[in-house]
């Protein structure tokens, strides 16, 4: 391969500068700020701040409410990840069988991807409208008196449902292209070697999809943890009440509603550590990922 070289040393640095500037201004600087303010107690009325050391963190560690939200976030993340991956895989396997239809299928499902999270949340809000939402009606026909925003289990169910709905298309596209990149002849060889479709799926198709699956797992966990903010925000209507919250939403509620900048920052730092851990896991997996040739 031919490599293009730079004649001066300054040009590459100059070209990198805008990108570096963006990263520093929008990522590292706020992150550093968050770490710093997590050690301070800020006066709610803006009259300066006091250094309190690790107080914000010890408070978090002892807070029963925070533990409850963390537990909910864990369950929420597991449910959203499991269902959006599972459903997408199921759909992709079905779509893959009718490869011809795959294109229209793909666009049909893909448009959901273009919906911004708050809009998805808003659509969810409409679907679950107390008096005329079609999903409320549906739930009612099963004898389930669905009360979004009032009953916390119902709100949680709606949050999971909308989040899954929003994420399925992304996973679907990845799974479908993963499936379609499995050589036709390999599947045909399996067809000759094994008469059970289920067994073929678990023995051949699934392992060959594993790299895609690992990648999507990380993406989905990150999505459930962070990107569902807009959905949660719309569904709980900014009124936490006894509604379930995710950790990210709690950061927002404490920081911007409760004006507890220190506590909110400490929570942010906890989340940052979480992201860091996920990233490490992802890189480890990518490193170990088997490259089939």
């Amino acid at each position: 391969m031919k490599r293009a070289g730079f004649t001066t040393r300054w040009l590459p640095i100059l070209l990198l500068l805008p990108q570096l500037a963006v990263i520093i201004v929008f990522f590292y600087w706020p992150a550093a700020q968050a770490v710093q303010s997590s050690f301070y107690l800020e006066d709610p009325f803006g009259f300066g701040s006091t250094f309190v050391g690790l107080d914000n963190y010890t408070y978090l560690a002892q807070s029963a409410e925070y533990a409850k939200i963390a537990r909910f976030t864990l369950v929420f993340t597991i449910l959203v990840t499991f269902f959006s991956l599972g459903l997408a895989l199921l759909l992709a396997v079905k779509a893959d069988k009718v490869i011809r239809g795959a294109k229209s299928y793909r666009t049909l499902l893909m448009w959901v991807y273009a919906v911004a999270p708050p809009v998805a949340g808003f659509i969810g809000l409409l679907m679950f409208n107390q008096s005329w939402g079609p999903l409320t009606e549906l739930a009612k026909s099963f004898g389930w008196d669905f009360a979004l925003g009032v009953n916390s289990t119902d709100t949680a169910a709606a949050m999971v449902l909308v989040s899954v709905w929003k994420q399925v298309p992304v996973n679907f596209i990845f799974f479908l292209s993963g499936l379609q990149s499995i050589p036709k002849s390999v599947r045909e060889a399996a067809l000759i070697d094994c008469s059970s479709a289920m067994r073929r799926f678990w023995d051949v198709t699934f392992p060959l999809l594993a790299p895609t699956g690992f990648f999507l797992l990380i993406i989905n966990i990150t999505y459930a943890l962070f990107d569902t903010f807009g959905i949660v925000d719309v569904l709980v209507k900014g009124e936490p009440g006894n509604n379930p919250l995710t950790l990210v939403y709690k950061v927002y509620v404490d920081g911007f509603r409760g004006n507890d900048m220190g506590g909110s920052s400490a929570q942010s730092v906890v989340l940052m550590v979480l992201v860091l851990a996920l990233t490490v896991v992802q890189f480890r997996l990518v490193e170990r990922r088997i490259h089939y040739t």
Binding site: E188, A189, I192, C194, S195, L208, A210
Partner: peptide, 20 residues
């Protein structure tokens, strides 16, 4: 009859081995 039940074995042009 399903391919697996035909009592045949096939060798493909690109070998079609299971990569994993």
């Amino acid at each position: 009859v399903d391919p697996a039940e035909r009592d045949i074995a096939m060798v493909f042009q690109n070998y079609a081995l299971y990569p994993h």
